[in-house]
Design a protein around this nucleic acid. Structure first.
Lengths: 189, 189
DNA sequence: CCAAACATGTAACATGTTACATGATTGC
DNA sequence: GCAATCATGTAACATGTTACATGTTTGG
């Protein structure tokens, strides 16, 4: 019977399918490119890599200069990843958004505080939007060589990035609208 | 020293601030209105309510006909909720979106499967969009009486709903764009 | 030399999910 | 009578976070 992996295990396999990496590099990947869709700390990643290794889905190659372990995906690992992508449905809606949850309860605080909250949300969405756009401009400008896997993976990461851009743009628009909508009550004497 | 509550505890206080409810009703609230921003199962809710009660943030009134317990928020509970809203920052970006994570790895599967995946995402976003719009149309049409808290809470839940509508709309647009973008490679001979 | 970044791991705790367990009421 | 819904709880397991713990290398 094959191992039952969670989302984290598959995410690690997906990152290793692009190129072999160390646990440290994988940890950084969760902090940067993947940060907006999934996150994981190194304390969760190292044990999970050990688990993947036990089940033959990855293997460790030569140690790097500072004692780093280079993990490589095995054919069995690739097969497991493709099965996950083709034969299982994404866990329905794992969205947990504390920022939006708070909006439901803003009627409890003074109107000026609610407005301040929305203004801050607006600023945050705009900041992320600028950052994402900068990344996109940078990535599409660079010629970017590499093996086939890496350039194909880059192509799809840009597609995901576009989702982030549209998402932040929509939510920035919403924040501005909500700010007007929230104030509407007070405008009237 | 005051209790340290997680997001769930505050979400329960927020729901109880609108009106007293039973654990069962709160469970349903997480399945419907709040489902898109936060979720919780009854097995997590009942113990958390007990914890809130222990710390005097809620109290139980008369039992309902089928042995249901009517939880009511206390002044201390309201104070704790307001403190959370005004004095703490939202946990930075708790977004976990398995559907979008998978997009990063779609280069691994045959192009027709990747396209099928995106088409399914498009359908799901459109479906939710229709559902949200229906809820908005229904809610804005109804006169909806109730106590002050409830109508103010409704006002803010509609503001949150608008975010959901704009979000699904943006992501539906993205899905359609991604479908074209993904196919672009194959079009060329 | 020393701080920052590289690099890996474990332990304790918090949160969240699935499965087990039980019983009452309503509508057909 | 019986199925669906209402109603509450616990136990076992899985996942995720914070804190503890240690050692290397590079660059200024």
């Amino acid at each position: 019977m094959p191992v039952k992996l969670g989302t984290l295990g598959h995410a690690l396999l997906g990152l290793l399918a692009m190129r072999p990496q160390s646990g440290y590099e994988l940890t950084r990947a969760f902090d940067v490119s993947l940060a907006n869709v999934w996150s994981a700390k190194h304390s969760q990643i190292y044990p999970e890599l050990a688990k993947l290794k036990t089940h033959g889905l990855v293997k460790v190659g030569a140690s790097g200069v500072r004692g780093s372990k280079r993990y490589t995906i095995t054919p069995a690992g690739r097969a497991a990843l493709v099965r996950w992508l083709t034969e299982t449905d994404p866990a329905p809606h794992t969205l947990r958004d504390e920022s939006m949850l708070r909006v439901f309860f803003l009627w409890m605080v003074p109107p000026d505080h609610a407005a301040a909250y929305l203004r801050e949300q607006l600023e945050q969405h705009r900041t992320r939007l600028r950052r994402y756009r900068a990344i996109r401009e940078h990535a599409t400008a660079a010629p970017k060589s590499g093996n086939g896997s890496e350039s194909e993976a880059l192509r799809w990461s840009l597609i995901a990035l576009e989702a982030g851009i549209r998402f932040e743009n929509a939510l920035a628009g919403w924040s501005a609208w909500a700010l007007r909508e929230a104030g509407a009550k007070e405008q009237l004497p």
